[in-house]
Amino acid sequence: MPFINLKTTKTGLLAPLFLLSIIAFGCNHSQPGSKKRELISFRAYNGINYSEVSRRMRNGLSFNEYGYQLEPQWKLKFVSDDSISIFSPTKNAFINFPLTRGYDSIFNAARSWLKVRTISKDSITMEILIQKGDSLDVKGTKVFMRFFADNYIKNVLHTDTSILRRPSRKDTLFIEGLSAKANADYNKAFAARQPAKITSRNSMVTVSQRTTRPDIMNNFDNSDDYLDPTYDIVINKAYKDFYFSFTMYIDDKGRTYYGYPLIGLDDEDTKADYIHTSKAVMESYLKLYLNIKPGSTLGMIHSSMVSVHVEGKKAK
């Protein structure tokens, strides 16, 4: 389901996916002497199929500096003032959800808080809101979802959603700038929308990439598959049994550089030994027996980072 949820990745970025639960905004209470604000009504727009065509930050970009991409995904239809139908790509069907209206064009549906900025029979602009503790931040996230009616797309714009959802020229220029910095210094690597690919070129080494199945436990979000591409590598007939977890930078030429351990090591001597030995595994086994294709975003190849879990199995 296309729920919007809050998620913090290990890079520290806040992915604009959103929340559950509802507080007193569903009630239309007014303070004494204040002007009563009516609940928004969707009656005039019931039955119209809308498709999301863009999801952008206030600066007009759909990418941030970490490589996270805001993707327009929603398809919706207002059924009534207390019901909305949202398309589920996992079920390939529209699912009805309760819709709870709050004050000042705010509503909650499909575990998400949204504020309608503009609405007509042709288009809708909504801002994503987030819940902080037991209150709702009505100042908004400055992340805006833009919808067009399917009829408007087909009969007025004479196009389709796949074209309208393409990244903008501004996105392209932004990624060009990030790529130039990352390729000049791999320490400035960012997540590749098409992650670096690691495959084996030797029968004694097997490689498998971890993938996320969208489900209720991860709020139907699998963005970690490109934000943190993770590989399990098994080396048979190794010099001894071992297991190391660490990150690797992969530059635009497919060259690898050691990042940092993925386990906690408080003792400095133990940490130094772990880094020394796992780096030696990378410089020997991984560089000798792996094929590495660098990652890219919008067709631009650039430095990025992957996580690897490397197991060595000594010959019996």
Score class of each variant (00 low, 15 high):
Met1Gln: 06
Pro2Gln: 13
Phe3Cys: 07
Thr11Val: 01
Leu19Met: 12
Leu20His: 11
Ser21Trp: 05
His29Arg: 15
His29Phe: 13
Gln31Gly: 04
Gln31Asn: 13
Leu39Lys: 12
Ile40Asp: 00
Ser41Leu: 05
Ser41Trp: 05
Ser41Glu: 12
Ser41Gly: 10
Arg43Ile: 14
Tyr45Lys: 06
Val53Gly: 13
Arg56Thr: 13
Arg56Lys: 15
Phe63Tyr: 15
Asn64Lys: 01
Tyr66Phe: 15
Tyr68Gly: 09
Pro72Glu: 00
Pro72Ile: 07
Lys77Ala: 11
Val79His: 00
Val79Asn: 03
Ser85Val: 05
Phe87Tyr: 15
Pro89Leu: 07
Phe94Met: 06
Asn96Gly: 07
Phe97Arg: 01
Pro98Arg: 02
Pro98Asn: 12
Leu99Cys: 00
Arg101Phe: 03
Ile106Val: 14
Ala110Gly: 01
Ala110Ser: 06
Arg111Pro: 00
Arg111Ala: 09
Lys115Arg: 14
Ser123Met: 11
Ile124Tyr: 05
Glu127Asp: 02
Gly133Glu: 06
Gly133Ser: 00
Asp134Ala: 10
Leu136Pro: 01
Lys142Glu: 14
Lys142Gly: 08
Met145Thr: 09
Ala149Glu: 12
Asn151Met: 08
Val156Tyr: 12
Leu157Lys: 11
Thr159Met: 09
Asp160Leu: 07
Ile163Ser: 10
Arg169Glu: 15
Phe174Ile: 05
Phe174Trp: 07
Ile175Asp: 06
Gly177Lys: 12
Ala184Thr: 14
Asn187Ala: 15
Ala189His: 10
Phe190Asn: 04
Phe190Val: 11
Arg201Ala: 06
Asn202Trp: 14
Val205Gly: 03
Arg210Leu: 15
Thr211Asn: 13
Thr211Val: 14
Arg213Leu: 12
Ile216Pro: 00
Met217Ile: 14
Asp224His: 03
Tyr226Glu: 00
Thr230Phe: 04
Asp232Asn: 10
Asn236Arg: 11
Tyr239Asp: 10
Tyr239Cys: 00
Phe244Ala: 02
Ser245Glu: 12
Ser245His: 10
Thr247Arg: 03
Met248His: 02
Tyr249Met: 08
Ile250Gly: 00
Ile250Trp: 05
Asp251Ala: 11
Lys253Thr: 10
Arg255Trp: 08
Thr256Tyr: 03
Tyr257Leu: 06
Tyr258Trp: 06
Tyr260Asp: 02
Ile263Phe: 08
Asp267Phe: 00
Ala272Gly: 05
Ala272Thr: 13
Tyr274Ser: 02
Val281Lys: 02
Ser284Leu: 02
Ser284Ala: 13
Tyr285Glu: 11
Leu286Glu: 13
Lys287Thr: 06
Asn291Gln: 13
Asn291Arg: 05
Gly295Trp: 09
Thr297Ala: 02
Leu298Phe: 05
Ser304Leu: 05
Val308Gly: 01
Gly312Pro: 03
